[in-house]
Design a protein around this nucleic acid. Structure first.
Lengths: 163, 163
DNA sequence: TATTGTTATACTCTATAACTATA
DNA sequence: TATAGTTATAGAGTATAACAATA
């Protein structure tokens, strides 16, 4: 049986006072928690975070191509291919060859994709509300504003035009 | 030359109105921005986010073992091995065989580890301040409180005691 | 029998280089 | 030549199963 209370060789509780004042540390832990919850919410729909995000962006921007989708998702083009492949294989997204530029695909949701996105969005919003609304009625909007501000601050970051 | 302005086949700007109300989406983007900045701050020290976090936790809790470190870092024990290996190889952390329980190691910083942690912590804090303080004097503490609250809400989450 | 550290392994996400077909 | 999509590949980060040493 495990009995180390009388041992005295190691700390019983691990503290993180030095780290807990760092936004990056707190954000990683909070993000992991949110991500795990989000994953659970999406799992019944057979969606991952990436496929859900892509589905939502395509639904809101029908006709966009994969390069634009990659930029919107802040990821590289090659990694978008698999995401769209998966959505296309499941009949949720269609790739239409562009008439104007035959190199690119115009992405759009199928009827099945529109329906699944609608259901998944409802469930995801409910999951998030259950987590965030414990912190008070204004916590959600305050948090969203702060997070958006951080992303913006990073974009116009400490090393501007270092291209 | 690229000239698609007169094409009209695809949207010029991609919107994310539906997603931008979701905490998970905003958090992922903000976290990526913070993480990239953090990575840049740690790179001169030869540290990653994981090794910096481990270094800080060991410095604050000398004598803790790898299982406790894993729990504190919210990761699995096998993945801690490589992190401690790397820190030990660089002479920043020492593994002392425990006299009371010879299965475990008592982890502690070496003098070099203490010195490096001190320098890295200063630089990381300055980097974070440069990003976060643009949002106002109270943004940092407000954000930390909200993030801690989210993590706590997740811990006592919607599916309690589902072990 | 349970726990610590470990190895092996696999899966996801991400990033880069190089190819093809179109422009 | 430049761009869109693609392939192949490699690197992190994370997760589980199984093992030896110790309790």
């Amino acid at each position: 049986m495990a009995r180390k209370a009388s041992d005295g060789a190691m700390p019983q509780t691990v503290t993180d006072a030095a780290l807990s004042g760092l936004v990056g540390y707190r954000m990683k832990r909070a993000f992991n928690a949110i991500r795990a919850d989000l994953l659970g919410a999406l799992e019944p729909f057979g969606l991952r975070v990436l496929t859900f995000t892509a589905l939502s962006l395509i639904g809101e921007n029908p006709g966009l191509n994969q390069s634009q989708l990659a930029a919107a998702m802040a990821m590289e083009r090659p990694n978008v291919v698999g995401v769209v492949d998966e959505l296309e294989r499941r009949g949720l997204v269609a790739r239409d060859r562009g008439a104007h530029d035959r190199r690119s695909y115009a992405l759009r949701l199928t009827d099945a994709g529109t329906a699944l996105l609608s259901e998944a969005t409802t469930v995801v919003a409910a999951h998030e509300a259950a987590m965030v609304d414990r912190l008070g009625p204004e916590a959600r909007s305050a948090l969203l504003a702060l997070l958006a501000g951080i992303e913006e601050a990073a974009a116009s970051g400490p090393s501007p035009d270092m291209s």
